Computed example of a mutant assay.
Amino acid sequence: MNIIQSNIANLPTKYGKFKIKAYKDEDQEHLAIMSENFQDLDIPYVRIHSECLTGDTLGSLKCDCQNQLDLALKFIAQEGGLVIYHRQEGRNIGLLNKVNAYALQDQGRDTIQANVELGFNEDERDYRIVEHIFKDLGIKKIKLITNNPKKLAYVESLGVDIKERIPAITKSNKYNKEYINTKKEQMGHMF
């Protein structure tokens, strides 16, 4: 794993002022978004947010991604901590395949069925960059903002002490209700 990283820069946002640092691993670039007081925190709040261009940028109602990112950035700006923007689009199947998965979902498949029909596992994400970011930023204890049991298990496998899990609960709508049900019933997400 050959990782290139940027310097830390300021990022004023509509949520508040942050510090950012980029990490490049092969062809993917990830971002650490830190509250201004991040370095002073013994146990920061942390959100590992998986990229979702259609949700995060375009405001898609087919998922809860933008709502979870919005919730995390507001919370971190207020309480202090870190959002890792994990750039693995569509559970790491890429944007083109994600749009193909959307087309299959339009025909009645759920997100897992669509990924499998396209030749992928239900979730192709690789969290190795998270370990590097945690080490680089000196993170040993956190309060993790997640609903995903796989993220919990991965962070625990790194030896990072999870002091608390904070659910990332947002409102569902008629377009993402089945998506959220699939995450809950088939992927074990904790809502």
Rank of each mutant, 00 (worst) to 15 (best):
M1W: 06
N2S: 10
I3T: 09
I3K: 06
I3Q: 07
Q5V: 00
S6K: 01
S6I: 00
N10F: 09
L11W: 14
K14W: 00
Y15P: 06
K17G: 09
K19D: 06
K21N: 02
A22H: 02
K24T: 15
K24Y: 04
E26G: 10
E26Y: 07
E26I: 12
D27Y: 07
D27I: 11
D27E: 10
E29L: 09
E29C: 11
E29V: 13
L31F: 14
A32R: 03
A32M: 04
I33K: 00
E36P: 06
E36Q: 14
Q39Y: 11
D40L: 13
I43W: 04
I43N: 07
P44W: 12
P44L: 05
Y45R: 03
R47V: 11
R47L: 10
I48W: 00
H49N: 02
S50G: 11
C52Q: 03
T54S: 07
G55K: 10
G55E: 11
D56Q: 11
G59A: 10
S60L: 08
K62H: 08
K62Y: 07
C63M: 14
C63T: 13
C65R: 03
C65N: 01
L69G: 04
L69E: 04
D70M: 13
A72Y: 11
A72K: 07
L73I: 08
A77C: 06
G81N: 02
G81V: 03
V83S: 06
I84C: 05
Y85A: 11
H86L: 15
R87W: 02
E89V: 10
E89G: 09
R91I: 10
I93E: 05
G94D: 04
G94E: 08
L96D: 08
N97H: 09
N97R: 03
N100T: 02
A101M: 01
A101H: 01
A103G: 04
L104C: 03
Q105G: 04
D106Y: 02
Q107R: 12
D110K: 06
D110Y: 09
T111D: 08
I112T: 02
A114F: 00
A114G: 02
N115P: 03
L118D: 00
F120T: 03
F120S: 10
F120A: 03
N121E: 14
E122D: 15
D123Q: 05
E124S: 12
D126V: 04
I129R: 04
K135A: 09
K135S: 10
L137S: 01
L137G: 09
I139C: 13
K141S: 13
L144Y: 15
P149H: 11
Y154C: 13
Y154A: 13
V155T: 12
E156W: 10
E156G: 02
E156Q: 13
L158P: 02
G159A: 03
V160I: 11
D161T: 09
E164D: 12
I166W: 01
P167V: 05
P167Q: 07
P167D: 11
I169R: 14
K171C: 02
S172M: 15
N176T: 11
E178K: 15
Y179G: 05
Y179L: 01
I180K: 09
N181E: 12
T182D: 04
E185S: 14
E185V: 07
Q186N: 10
Q186D: 09
M187Y: 02
M190D: 01
